[in-house]
Design a protein around this nucleic acid. Sequence first.
DNA 1: AACGTGTTCAACCGCGCTGTA
DNA 2: GTACAGCGCGGTTGAACACGT
Length: 206
Amino acid sequence: MEGYNVNLSVMRKGAWTREEDDLLRRCIETLGEGKWHQVPYKAGLNRCRKSCRLRWLNYLKPNIKRGDFTEDEVDLIVRLHKLLGNRWSLIAGRLPGRTSNDVKNYWNTQLRIDSGVKTMKNKFQETRKTIAIRPQPQKFIQGSYYLNSKEPILDHIQAAEDLSTLPQTSSSTKNGNDWWETLLEDEDAFERIACPSLELEEEHFS
DNA sequence: AACGTGTTCAACCGCGCTGTA
DNA sequence: GTACAGCGCGGTTGAACACGT
């Protein structure tokens, strides 16, 4: 198992300095993203590669958007969370410039319902249990949980199945992740699911 | 001004998944 | 089939900051 406990005695931890940021930025500009095993050595940083990657992805990457989430972004987060559950990277993938860490933090601090301990700060107060569609299990055969469920999410899934561009999930040889990736790559399909009709929206958020 | 409490968010950590030998 | 290494993700933590008394 790789991790943080390699040479813990010499690896620096905690907040990054401006100098470290500069070193990391220059290194990534030279090496490109993805060669994280080389980054600490090439950059001359006394940090583990996971820390370098995290710093780059969550803070230094050029297109990262800072500041408050817009109403549209919040709206999309709520919808996607309803659909996907805590799959922050997928949710963040639909929000240009936002990181999974940002989305997760925003959800946990602003949107999460924490059994009454924390009060909601906005209009999206929601008490219904979230039913999240997970990538793996999707074989939507007759009699499956999803198809028999009375939850509104059924409409979303059926909408997905109605799309001719998507693989037929009941007979497809593709696994659930493939189906899911296909869905995420298909803008129209995704919009139909992530942005349900007005009636559905009212049902969810009223 | 000083202190206590609550909130935010950057960073850490552990684990699962995937590719490779 | 198995072991190992590397990557990426989600949950959690804790320092810094904001706010109230």
